[in-house]
Amino acid sequence: MFQSGKINGENVLRFPGRAAAAPLAPVAAVSLLPVLIVLHQETSTPGRVGNALRALGHGLDIRRPRFGDALPETLDDHAGAIIFGGPMSANDPDDFVRREIDWIAVPLREQRPLLGICLGAQMLAMQLGARVAPHPEGRTEIGYYPIRPTPAGLALCQHWPDHVYHWHREGFELPRGAELLAEGGDFPIQAFQSGHAFGFQFHPDVTYAMMHRWTTRGHERLESPGARPRHHHFADRAIHDVAERAWLKAFLDGWLVRMPLSMMSEAAE
């Protein structure tokens, strides 16, 4: 489970396990820097993840490479980076897709906190050499589906939700050298860790309003094999959302303290 401690009288959750290159910064220090947010559509938002980051004191540096925004050459000025989902595929030949996958080498090289959500996780997996592909029987995960944390996942965070929200038709292999954190049914790889980088096949970012938009604008996808009917999305949210929201907050608290304290000191000068 996360290790708890107190900094400035506040409870702070820390990740155990892997040794960092330098002492980790307290959340109060990390909050001086924004989080880089990579989105893929004009109307996309960071949803509940963005709300949680703002509540922790972070600004959000939102970039949309698909529409011409550049990605930074270093993450020295950011507390971390999150690459969100989108309707495109990590296998698409579009220039912005290739550039994003190549750019992931920056946080990996600098050992900075990185999170990929759905498409972002697939891009991370591809950068790490894993294959991204549709389900062999054409099945999808659209709606709530069960996941099972592995021993490594439970060592990272004890209280995982037993169902999480999905919206995807492709999955990925576990990258070589990565740790499997959570597994599923039709798409076995649901969450993984590689150093300071994490990939989630599911969508902890989705708010109630986003769920309305997705199930309205993307209603035709609800006919895909394996997809849940629209009313199940909202009925299941009433059951599972509290646990998923609490887990997300605990994860983000621990993820952000993976930023080296030495880098924070340099950034503050």
Score class of each variant (00 low, 15 high):
S262C: 08
W103G: 10
I189F: 01
A55D: 14
Q3F: 12
P260G: 12
L32R: 13
T140D: 00
A178G: 08
A209L: 06
G138R: 02
I7K: 09
P225L: 08
R245D: 12
Y165M: 07
R131I: 07
L261R: 15
R169L: 13
L181Q: 02
P225V: 14
L252Y: 01
G218W: 00
L71I: 02
N91L: 12
V27C: 01
A191F: 06
A238Q: 15
A197H: 04
V206S: 10
E110C: 01
E73Q: 05
D253K: 14
L13C: 12
R131Y: 00
G80F: 04
L154N: 07
L256M: 10
P87A: 15
H168E: 13
F96N: 04
E42I: 03
H240I: 09
L53A: 07
R148Q: 15
R258D: 10
M1N: 14
I142Y: 02
M211T: 01
H203K: 11
P16N: 03
S262V: 11
H233N: 07
A182G: 05
P188F: 12
H40N: 03
R14D: 09
V242N: 10
Q201A: 13
A21L: 12
Q41Y: 05
P72T: 04
G50K: 06
H233E: 04
A25L: 06
Q158L: 13
C157L: 11
L124H: 01
L174P: 04
M211H: 00
G85V: 11
